[in-house]
């Protein structure tokens, strides 16, 4: 048995979608009951760590729009998906004082073994704009400072694993790993929690060496875009390895035994310090009934995989 968790935004049910569109009287109670249901589903699947389904979040960056001098701007496509997020415009430097925008937007009923995902600074800077900083590097480092305040608040309240969502590192052909590393140092130096950097929406086969050098506890891979054979060429004895094994971009439900065999094979070849399985990216790209099935299957895969 290995450990497991999910990350990112979960799908709303048809009933909740309708309620959000019509702003019905029972909207708040629906949000809560659906959040409770997802937390129960993760517990019932025996996932190692439980996450908030983030049902109220319109996109992964939206809580940061509450920060000083940050304004909502135009819609932008989420990479090659048919889903859009709102660009944030960081119009002054005051946002760095940040604090607990993530923590205050999470459900208070999460169990002790809880995890949460936040954007990684390079990706954050690459997907948003700033009038306050002259260079992208400066913007990235200052976002890292803001995110460090968020992480400290999360760790203080008991989060043991912090997922860092880094799709731009996977999607972009050119990545300045110096900037990525400097920003991650700001976020992880002396931190008393595990940090796992998740790459998805692109093949990182050629970047794995650079990723292994980054100051994070572990790396997560979407094996629908980065072939397992590429990951297997590397040694993970100093890093946690999370295999993004369930596919949030297809309704087909994974066959547990096939996945267990695949995870065992990856782990046997990479010898990771610790091993986890997760979804490959946000479950919100499939409707709720399929997401529920995938949570259950993820637990089954984790229980069936060999301990490292």
């Amino acid at each position: 048995m290995i450990s497991s968790y999910t990350f990112g935004i979960y799908p709303r049910s048809e009933e909740l979608i309708e309620a959000t569109r019509k702003n019905t009287e029972n909207l708040a109670s629906l949000f809560q009951s659906e959040t409770d249901g997802y937390i129960s589903a993760q517990k019932n699947a025996n996932l190692g760590f439980v996450s908030d389904p983030l049902l109220k979040w319109d996109d992964i960056y939206r809580p940061f729009s509450n920060l000083e001098s940050v304004n909502l701007s135009s819609l932008n496509r989420i990479y090659e998906m048919n889903t859009f997020y709102r660009i944030l415009s960081f119009d002054g430097p005051d946002f760095i004082n940040g604090g607990n925008n993530v923590q205050s937007n999470l459900d208070s009923s999460l169990p002790k073994n809880k995890t949460v995902a936040i954007p990684e600074p390079f990706t954050f800077a690459e997907r948003h704009t700033s009038k306050a900083f002259k260079t992208k590097e400066e913007f990235t480092i200052n976002l890292a400072k803001m995110l460090r305040a968020e992480i400290d608040s999360l760790v203080e309240s008991g989060f043991e694993i912090i997922q860092l969502l880094a799709p731009s590192i996977a999607y972009n052909k050119e990545v300045d790993f110096g900037v990525v590393s400097d920003a991650l140092k700001v976020m992880t130096d002396g931190l008393k929690a595990k940090t796992i950097l998740h790459t998805y929406f692109g093949d990182v086969s050629a970047k794995i060496e650079s990723l292994l050098e980054l100051p994070v506890s572990g790396l997560g891979f979407d094996i629908t875009t980065t072939p397992a054979s590429s990951i297997e060429k590397h040694n993970f004895s100093d890093k946690i390895l999370t295999v993004g094994i369930t596919n949030s971009f297809n309704t087909a439900i994974e066959k547990p035994q096939e996945c267990i065999n695949q995870v065992d094979e990856i782990n046997a070849k990479t010898k990771p310090k610790e091993s986890y399985v997760s979804n490959n990216f946000d479950l919100e790209y499939i409707p709720k009934e399929f997401a529920m099935d995938k949570i259950s299957v993820l637990g089954e895969i984790a229980r069936g995989a060999k301990d490292v």
Binding site: P11, R21, D58, N82, T251, E284, F290
Partner: peptide, 17 residues
């Protein structure tokens, strides 16, 4: 049809398998 998937914010579209 599988169900609705987000376009943005509270906007969704019906997606099929």
């Amino acid at each position: 049809f599988a169900g609705r998937v987000r376009s943005w914010d509270n906007k969704y579209y019906n997606k099929a398998r």
